[in-house]
Design a binder for these strands. Structure first.
Length: 355
DNA sequence: TCTGGGGTCCTAGGACCC
DNA sequence: TCTGGGGTCCTAGGACCC
């Protein structure tokens, strides 16, 4: 039997801020983009439970959060600092199992199958980890315990906030049955709407349906949904993720159709992309420009070079050319982004021939 | 109410090579 | 004269997650 834990840090960015500003504890705190007295164009990144009482939540437009609670504490996102804290969490987690996958800045999977042999042991182990994170790092977290990543993730959602939840193999179907289908991992808004239109409201509805009906509508993805709904997931812990792309994007304070202003922004974000490539010692071969217009329609245009490059001017020139080819004259732009992909690490030339 | 920024994976058609 | 099949890369777009 596999035993998988998902450690998910509670309201992580705010918890990090509480570490260095203990005086904000107990007050509604929102980490996100500058609300600019209600005119800000960003969203809430994280908020604590005091703020959630007022209906504020992640991904909510920051302007609305400001309207609801203008006297809440609004803090900017200090990603570099959260990353440092995140590292300490991962290091602590690795003490409990080397087979470890960091899925995001605030989530870590642990495969403890080698060390723990039964559910009781896994629950005790989760308690121990949770206590260590609390005692040593002074951070709250929730832990899901189950037999695969999907169920550990779903268990963790049920454990929040500040809890531990075990879902045994034999209890998986009953656990999932009454959860709304939109909460199933991998089912977003679009898929939720389509599934509802087909008559499926809960995860149990999908689990009891037949996979061929889902495959007809959703192709391969249908089968994945069906398996997930039945708590089936064979995916392994991936210890080392390969970086596939590096990009930056920026929303204008006001939508603009002015070419010079847009090109300035392209240069700005290209420079940031270049710095990140340099820091990670990457060459790139493909440049992609993303344009979001006022009405939120997005267009991508990309170009692959003949050879890998690590040159800033190449990013800028390619990106501006792509923008000129793609942009529709006079149409106002909300956001512009530059992304590089087909990355290769250059620690000396690659061998072409093997002798 | 008005919607960020960092990513990943999947699909599908066309080009091109063998 | 009529017409393969497999593999890989490129490009564009969509959906999803945190």
């Amino acid at each position: 039997m596999r035993l998988i834990l998902l450690i998910d840090m509670d309201y992580f960015f705010v918890a990090c801020e509480e570490l260095r500003h203990p005086e904000i504890k107990g007050k509604p705190v929102i980490v996100g983009f500058d609300p600019k007295e209600g005119r800000g164009r960003g969203v809430v990144s994280t908020c604590n439970y005091e703020a959630r009482k007022f209906g504020i939540h992640s991904a909510m437009p920051i302007s609305i959060a400001y309207r609801i609670k203008p006297d809440a504490i609004f803090l900017p996102i200090d990603y570099a600092y959260y990353e440092k804290v995140s590292k300490s969490v991962v290091e602590l987690a690795k003490r409990y199992s080397q087979k470890c996958e960091q899925v995001s800045i605030d989530e870590v999977f642990l495969d403890v199958s080698e060390k723990i042999k039964d559910y009781d042991g896994a629950s005790e182990y989760a308690k121990e980890i949770k206590r260590a994170i609390s005692d040593e790092l002074h951070l709250p977290c929730s832990i899901g315990v189950s037999v695969n990543k999907l169920l550990a993730k779903m268990a963790c959602e049920a454990a929040k906030p500040n809890g531990i939840k075990l879902v045994k193999q034999e209890g998986a179907k009953a656990f999932l049955r009454d959860i709304p289908i939109g909460k199933l991992y991998g089912v977003g808004q679009k898929t939720e709407e389509r599934l509802k239109a087909m008559g499926y409201k809960t995860i149990g509805d999908v689990a009891d349906s037949n996979s061929s009906r889902l495959s007809q509508v959703f192709k391969n993805f249908g089968n994945e949904i069906y398996n997930s709904a039945n708590g089936i997931d064979d995916s392994e812990i991936i210890e080392n993720w390969e970086v596939k792309s590096i990009g930056r994007e920026r929303t204008f304070e006001e939508d603009t159709a002015e070419k010079t202003q847009i090109e300035e922004k392209i240069k700005e974000v290209s420079k940031e992309v270049f710095e990140e490539l340099k820091a990670q010692n990457f060459y790139f071969k493909t440049v992609t420009v993303k344009i979001r217009y006022s009405d939120f329609t997005e267009h991508l245009k990309s170009k692959s070079l003949l050879h890998p490059s690590n040159d800033l001017q190449t990013i800028i020139d390619t990106a501006i050319k792509l923008f000129e080819q793609s942009a529709e004259e006079g149409r106002k732009v909300r956001k512009i982004g530059v992304r590089t992909s087909t990355l290769s690490e250059r620690k000396g030339q690659k061998k072409i021939f093997n002798s």
